[in-house]
Design a protein around this nucleic acid. Structure first.
Length: 486
RNA sequence: GGCCCCGUCGUCUAGCCUGGUCUAGGACACAUGCCUUUCACGCAUGCAACACGGGUUCGAAUCCCGUCGGGGUCACCA
């Protein structure tokens, strides 16, 4: 049997990382078994801007490196892959259910149902719709009136359904607990529980891996599969993702929950995939870092936790650091460039010299560069001559007796050092400190703040060399002036 | 409220199915120290959990029951 999994997002214009994780588990399962991963768009709601929202989803998947075998753009033999274009299929399935006597026309009104619901609530009972006897006369009248009706599935009573969930284990549900549910609205459009079954059957999905909020939905769906004589796929319900430091479901109010936010900060797809895979899944008691290939090889549903996991931005950040460290220099430069461009800090078009400068900065930054966006916070001063002094650093390193004189003397050192490179700078500044009896920290730190404006950063000699002689001296002069006037 | 799912360090988790090897292991975060021109890295150390209560058993994180807590569902939403 070929494993076929799917992810069926609604085009809401937002890719929740919890959803991305669910998609990842589906993708991983398919790839692990050499099967297929299908993308299907649940757009029965027919909102506007569907196209843009779909594009956002596809971009997110492409960024993550989760390729789909069938779906939008890819096509496939079981299409269309947009629910809005599958009305035909739903109608045929509806006819089959009618022929089989599994559904009935429900002429109830919104008011009647609301009243029943309120009554159930008042008696603290679950609200369950059941078929009410309708006299032939009434039925004839309704039909004559052309009164609108929904189509309801008549749930067979007295049975116990058993779902062997691949994550949750065996789960039982008595059919008496399930109310007759609507599968088609009066306007002919299908509801999720129905459309989803038809789609999964048509597309020959073998494993339905989805959010646990659908666990109870599964029982009505099983009834539809059965009524239509379709083979039941395997189900796996993935626990929800909780907010950081909590057991409550992660929502948009809990900070960064959209995939795009992480993309915009310069996170790596490899890191995001690694992180998301470990959120609710583990391979053994020690391994934290997994490559995409390794995940495909090692992923299995039986090691997915049955309890919720909470989103941990700190851990994501750490994993990101691990992957960033492994990234080849060239790719780091490529990753950083868009951020520089966005802020107008890059030459356009990019010259070889500029690229070399960026490369030098990235090398100097080393492990300090965790996400690509860090280039803007940690390396800004390499790309602008507008010096911004950090007040704390100025107070700590520059507001000291003797500092102006020290900087003036260091300026002399920088004027003459030849060549202006790391070894020479290191030797010259070392010699200066030694000959004047200054501890290195008292020389290096003021000079760092004077030339970069910051108290922290890469090794000082690297900074000076990248900046170049003229820039360093200009900045020292500027700092000296600043110290005098304020 | 009925029904269903879930409950190990702050967080991700191992262990649970197949009770003893668990004075509960690893990782992130945090704290301290070392390294060091700052920061980051690295290294070392530390802090920290079986939700609670019963039961079964020679023995329970592991099995059973209950309580509490969290989540889902009970839509002509998905």
């Amino acid at each position: 049997m070929i494993v076929r999994t799917r992810f069926a997002p609604s085009p809401t214009g937002f890719l929740h990382i919890g959803g991305v994780r669910t998609a990842l588990f589906n993708w991983l399962l398919a790839r692990h078994h050499g099967g297929q991963f299908i993308l299907r768009i649940d757009d029965t709601d027919q909102q506007r801007h569907v196209e843009a929202a779909v594009a956002l989803i596809l971009d997110g998947f492409r960024w993550m490196g989760m390729d789909w075998d069938e779906g939008p753009e890819a096509g496939g033999p079981h299409g269309p892959y947009f629910q809005s274009q599958r009305a035909d299929r739903y109608r045929k399935a509806t006819e089959a259910l009618i022929a089989g006597g599994h559904v009935y026309r429900d002429y109830s009104t919104q008011e009647e149902r609301d009243a029943d619901r309120r009554e159930a609530e008042a008696f603290k009972r679950a609200y369950r719709f059941r078929r009410k006897p309708v006299s032939d006369a009434d039925l004839a009248r309704f039909e004559a009136e052309g009164r609108p009706y929904g189509l309801r599935f008549e749930v067979p009573l007295g049975r116990t359904l058993v779902l062997n969930d691949l994550i949750k284990g065996p789960v039982e549900q008595k059919t008496d607990e399930i109310g007759d549910f609507v599968i088609v609205r009066p306007d002919g459009t299908p509801l999720y529980n129905f459309a989803s079954v038809i789609d999964d059957a048509d597309m020959q999905i073998t494993h339905v891996v989805r959010a646990e909020e659908h666990l109870t939905n599964t029982f009505p769906q099983m009834l539809i599969f059965e009524a239509l004589g379709y083979q039941l796929p395997a189900f796996a319900h993935v626990p929800f993702v909780a907010a950081p430091g909590s057991r409550k479901k992660l929502s948009k109010r809990d900070g960064a929950v959209g995939l795009d936010e992480y993309i915009n900060r310069g996170y790596l797809p490899s890191a995001m995939m690694n992180y998301l895979s470990r959120l609710g899944w583990s391979y053994d008691d020690t391994q934290e870092i997994f490559s995409r290939e390794e995940l495909i090889e090692k992923f299995s549903l039986d090691r997915v936790n049955s309890s919720p996991a909470s989103h941990d931005p700190d851990k994501l950040f750490w994993i990101q650091g691990e992957w960033m460290r492994k990234l080849p220099l060239e790719q780091k430069v490529d990753g950083v460039l868009p951020f520089l461009k966005r802020e107008g800090l890059a030459e356009e078009p990019i010259s070889d010299a500029f690229r070399q400068r960026v490369e030098a900065v990235v090398v100097a930054l080393g492990d300090r560069l965790k996400v690509f966006g860090d280039i803007l916070t940690l390396g800004r001063y390499f790309f602008t001559e507008t010096l911004t002094h950090d007040p704390d650093a100025v107070k700590k390193r520059l507001r000291k007796d003797g500092v102006p004189q020290l900087l003036a003397e260091l300026d002399q050192v920088l004027e003459t050092v030849e060549p202006f490179d790391v070894p020479s700078l290191e030797k010259a500044i070392h010699d200066y400190a030694e000959s004047h009896g200054h501890p290195m920290g008292q020389v290096v730190n003021p000079l760092r703040v004077a030339t970069t404006g910051q108290g922290v950063g890469p090794g000082l000699y690297d900074c000076l060399a990248i900046l170049g002689r003229a820039s360093c001296r200009r900045r020292i002069a500027e700092t000296l002036a600043m110290l005098q006037t304020s």
